[in-house]
Design a binder for these strands. Structure first.
Lengths: 217, 217
DNA sequence: AATCTATTCAATGATTTGTTTGAATACTTG
DNA sequence: CAAGTATTCAAACAAATCATTGAATAGATT
């Protein structure tokens, strides 16, 4: 094989993979599917695109091996495909967070307006006697994996279930990732009700990356 | 700020960054610039594209903050811009190596034809008494950083300088990255001249990622 | 078998991307 | 300041990408 042919086909193949990341809707889908499996319609609804469009993006992602699917009756459930797919998405995300002013500014502004300007990181987490870890994602996502010690109250049920939360602890909320707004909503609601609340920057996925030995394929 | 607006602008910005990776020529350029600074013309020559085309890709990469430039007289030198840019490229590359059959097959076939089908990894490296580490990149790239203990003989000079190499040691060659062919050429030449030679999978950059505290920006 | 539902397919037009070509610009050297 | 070199710019066309629309398919339910 010619050197030039070799390099061209290698780099073209990798560029094809990168192109799968090169669309806003697909990134949002990927972020969603990293937290658990979803049907095409769920994906479409939650990312605010049409079903046909979601289907097409999902197939492109599947061809790129970034997601996988399983059929259950009429429904087809899609999930992220393995650790490396998430690692690559995370590396891209962190690059953007570190170096892309547009991302930094938008995130800071949104969090500020949402009344959740500060956030904690996992290594600066207070002990169990000082804080309670609250997972505000939908229950199925919590069930498919969560941070150790976290309690689950989906954001939609939180207003009715405030009574379940201790008032002498700091409530530390988390959700799907840095661009998920559930945790911000939760902080806002909790603060409005007199709780001490703050958003956690990390999510279950970051924990899974280091601790889930089964996430190999 | 509306939730939808927030997510759209965040994901659009990150997708824009991903698009910078979504072109074969740009990936090859990035791989090249990760090993040291190069002028536009050098980039063009080594990646087999026109100067104008290289210039345009370089500017796009610069806008995406993946590379940076410095002027010296008539020349403008481009380099990769910091650790995170390389980390993201590496994550993408590893994802492709792990999951993209086209990449796996092409790489295996090329190495096979080039007479360099096996390779070592850093953690399986023999001791100094058994092996010699040979950096076959151009001298300026070696000068800008190399694996500890490595000896430099650029691939172009290797035929004339075989006499400098010890015949009782295994010669372990490395170059710019997994898709650089210098090390394969070196292995072929060395074997043809009776040496025991094998290609190293890792490069200086992988070492730098973990050991160069100055690679922060 | 007929109907219903979730998903995919196919075609369309608007937009973006990539390369080439030749001219323009920025800096250096004589 | 004129000539030379490296790089960038601008225009142009081909090709790829994206969202939308409406029809087609696969499986479940009746």
């Amino acid at each position: 094989m010619e050197k030039r042919t070799f390099k061209d086909s290698i780099y073209t193949a990798i560029a094809g993979l990168a192109k799968a990341f090169g669309n806003a809707n697909r990134l949002e889908i990927l972020d969603l599917l990293a937290n658990g499996e979803k049907t095409v319609e769920q994906v479409a609804t939650q990312t605010a695109i049409t079903v046909a469009n979601a289907s097409q993006h999902l197939q492109l992602l599947k061809n790129a091996r970034l997601v996988k699917s399983r059929r259950e009756g009429n429904f087809i459930f899609y999930t992220i495909n393995g650790k490396q797919a998430y690692t690559a998405w995370k590396a891209l995300r962190e690059l953007a967070l570190a170096a892309e002013p547009a991302v930094q500014v938008t995130l800071r502004q949104y969090r500020h307006e949402a009344g959740s300007p500060e956030s904690l990181t996992l290594d600066s987490l207070p002990g169990n006697d000082r804080a309670l870890l609250l997972d505000v994602r939908p229950t199925d996502e919590y069930a498919s994996g969560s941070l150790p010690g976290a309690v689950s109250i989906p954001i939609g049920e939180l207003p009715q279930r405030l009574g379940e939360l201790p008032r002498h602890l700091t409530i530390i909320t988390y959700c799907r990732g840095p661009f998920c707004t559930f945790a911000d909503d939760a902080v806002q609601l909790l603060k409005a009700n007199g709780f001490d609340a703050v958003r956690l920057e990390e999510t279950y996925l970051d924990h899974r990356l280091h601790n889930d030995e089964s996430w190999k394929n």
